[in-house]
Amino acid sequence: MTDQAHNGEKVAWTEQELAEIEEIASRYPSRRSAMLPVLWMAQHKFGWLSLPVLELVAETVGVPPSEARAVASFYTMLKKKPTGRYVLQVCHTLSCALNGAEEIIRHIESKYDFDENGNTPDGLFTLERVECLASCGSGPMMQVGEHYYERLTPEKVDEILAGFESGEPLPTPRPEADEWQWNLQS
């Protein structure tokens, strides 16, 4: 067993988290269906899914540790490595590419000194190329945390990243869908 703790801390749930997990598990006829929700909770709590964290998740949902790791390894949003504080996930699939995704990626790359894992030395950013995020009509676009930043231009990217750097909480971006009016005018 891996006994080195996650980031030097012991991994465990709080009472409150345990209660939440029980509530989640009660939504499904089988406890192991709580796997993805619990992996998400673990990722929010611990930042990423180290081996000790995966063991905790496995124990929580009642599967062997190998299963928790297999599931985590399958899904791209579950972090198997630590990342920077802001993960810039730029879509590079066809529709976004047709509208300049590569230009946006090159622009971001030129702004910082990313290492081979896509992290900046200060731990602030991680740059990731991701596949289609269902925002193809408003590309190029990127996801940071939960938010979509759409119709990106180099200037818009500068503005967004400057916001992250300043540490000021940014206004939540309005999804393109909110602006969407074209076929509704008639």
């Binding site: 529709s95 047709l98 509208n99 193809c136 009509g137 408003s138 076929n183």
Partner: peptide, 14 residues
């Protein structure tokens, strides 16, 4: 329909 790519008014149309 979701329309994207090289059109001037990409978006969702019924």
């Amino acid at each position: 329909l979701s329309v994207s790519g090289h059109v001037l008014k990409p978006g969702v149309y019924e």
